[in-house]
């Protein structure tokens, strides 16, 4: 099987609200897939459909080759899930919750569990009600990472973690990928997605607006160029530049990727004394889709 998750034309409505509006998502087996979107765009709803908690109104959803609604229990043997807002049973300790979730998934590897608990500096003897949001998230993460699941579904797993723990989380995800596990990582932390993900899907208002590898997506956007010329500034018309700023011999602008070669050729002909060029960041990519929302 080449795709762990295949969603096409998924529609989910709550009353009159169309939470998912013909959403598409493909996650290949063995990849770390970033699932990006602003709050309320439908990331968690998509994940809940994948977990068989919500029933889709239209579209096709295939999870690990099965139907997530019909084959829920069988499929859940092969995946582990970390919710975005982790809520634990207040009277159980963190260690008990980790063991419970492990047992429900069909067993825990005690060695791996203890190593993860130590790594994440979690006190497993504390009652869950005393944990902070970050610590509750660690409990769910340790339980998921200690499992043998072939697919990890992580819904904004680092939203409560401090930067050190976030770094640790990245290491863990990279380790999982090297073991051949598939990861669906919903997030709105762009640096995290940039560092971890092979491919990303960006959704907005319940609809997929971009999908592909980061390199693919960068082609869709603009490179920033800051050049100081030795000669006079050439004619730059017809290149579709944005934010063009000419100050003496210095040219700063954003150039669409297809026009990049042309721009450099013209600047080169004029003579370049220094050139700084930056590839588009995911942030720009993101803003391209959401910036006009306001």
């Amino acid at each position: 099987m080449t795709n762990a998750i295949e969603i096409a034309g998924l529609v989910k409505t709550f009353g009159s609200i169309r939470a998912l509006d013909e959403l598409d998502l493909t996650v290949r087996t063995g990849e770390v897939h970033g699932f990006l979107g602003p709050n309320g765009s439908g990331k968690s709803t998509t994940i809940r459909v994948l977990l068989g908690l919500l029933r889709s109104n239209a579209g096709s959803v295939t999870l690990l080759g099965g139907d997530p609604w019909r084959d829920a229990t069988a499929l859940h043997r092969r995946l582990a899930y970390v919710p975005g807002d982790v809520n634990l049973w207040p009277q159980l300790t963190g260690g008990e919750v980790i063991d419970l979730l492990g047992r429900l998934r069909g067993g825990v590897d005690p060695g791996r569990r203890d190593k993860l608990i130590q790594k994440f500096e979690l006190d497993p003897t504390k009652r869950s009600r005393a944990y902070s949001k970050g610590n509750r998230q660690k409990v769910a993460l340790v339980a998921a990472l200690a499992s043998d699941a072939e697919l990890l579904i992580l819904d904004e797993p680092t939203s409560g973690l401090d930067p050190l723990m976030e770094e640790l989380f990245r290491e863990c995800v990279q380790e999982e990928r090297s073991r051949g596990r598939t990861v669906l990582l919903s997030s709105h932390i762009l640096s995290e997605v940039e560092a971890l993900c092979d491919r990303v899907s960006i959704i907005r208002n319940g609809r997929t607006v971009e999908t592909g590898s980061l390199t693919d997506l960068r082609h869709l956007t603009e490179t920033s160029v800051d050049a100081t010329l030795t000669g006079p500034v050439p004619d730059l018309a017809g290149l579709d530049l944005r934010d063009l700023d000419i100050e003496g011999g210095r040219v700063r602008c954003l150039v669409p990727t297809p026009a990049l070669g042309d721009l450099l050729a013209r600047l080169g002909a004029a003579g370049i004394s220094s050139l700084v060029s930056q590839p588009p960041t995911l942030e720009q990519l993101f803003l391209r889709h959401y910036g006009d929302q306001a």
Binding site: T93, G95, E96, D99, L100, R103, P110, T125, R127, R129
Partner: peptide, 11 residues
């Protein structure tokens, strides 16, 4: 809150 067991719990 008293500390509890680090392992075990419901099966």
């Amino acid at each position: 809150d008293r500390a509890g067991p680090a392992h075990g719990g419901p099966t």
